[in-house]
Amino acid sequence: MLKSLTTTLLKNRPLKLSVTALSLSVAALAPQIAAAETFPDRPVSMVVSYSPGGATDFQARIVTMLAANEKYLGQPMVILNKPGAGGKIGWDAFASKAKNNGYELAAYNVPHFIAQSIVFKTKYNINNLEPVANWGADPAVLIVGKDSPFNTLQDLLDYAKDNPAKVTFSGAGLYVGHHIAFLQLAKASGLKLTYVPHKGGTPAMKSVMGGQVKAGFNNLSDAFRNQDRVKILAVADLQRNEKFLPNVPTFKEQGLDIDDSSVNFRGIMAPKGTSPEVLDYLAKRVPTMFEDAKTLKKMDSAGSPVRVIPRDEVISMWKEREAYLKDLLADLKK
């Protein structure tokens, strides 16, 4: 009785003021009961740590557009942009301030946030965040300009062998997927290469197209769209991308030991301490929302590769990534 009273009152926004005291006392008495059975009874927010219009932002908007559907959450999801410092600002604020009631979620980018939590003094790491589900995976690809003399990965590596450190690679900043892929390439080939960090994927792509750098790592989706200006030499993933680039081989096929550690995984997460009931509820319903035909169609037309991964697998994926990145980045610091 009391519970239903609070919920009806809380739904009514203008009444919020008068109910504050009441709901506060109720919330103190029975925090869990109200949460589990009626969740969600108001809109759910999701922090995106990148600016509006960026790849993560518009993909997040597409995959959450059906949240209000009764089949899924029954409540809309509202995107909150908190960009800055390569995502650190948004994630820092999320990890330190978000309430763990299930109404405050965030989008994650692996390996970005894991690498940052290793290199910088951040308030977040994989232990104080809980994945809900993964919606997309955008592998890094190796690109060169259309007029570049290199036609295969081997051409590039041969040149790099004769000209140590002279091959410049562009990428979207430090400790992001592109940088990880570059580090892996340098490690696997044993060659001296030069990385030029850019302020995001688009400027990095421009530098390759304009010939300011000799090569670059970029998102598969962006490279796919710009194929008339760049040549794609290799994909940094475990298998080829059959849908968009069936003819581009992986690094592994070309004899270099580079796995999928640099793949840019995007998904939804909640702060640590969110009740298991709420997490279960989200983990069950959110993936089906990602797989809705409408969402898939829109993602496809936006050229964004979808890879839905359930919560359990994301948890182990995060752990593997952290262990691997700690190793890779420790080499770098020497």
């Binding site: 926004r13 919020k16 003021l17 504050t20 927010s45 509202v78 909150l80």
Partner: peptide
């Protein structure tokens, strides 16, 4: 413009 303000006691 659907600006989201921080959740506070009042609006």
């Amino acid at each position: 413009l659907q600006l989201q303000t921080p959740s506070a006691l009042l609006i």
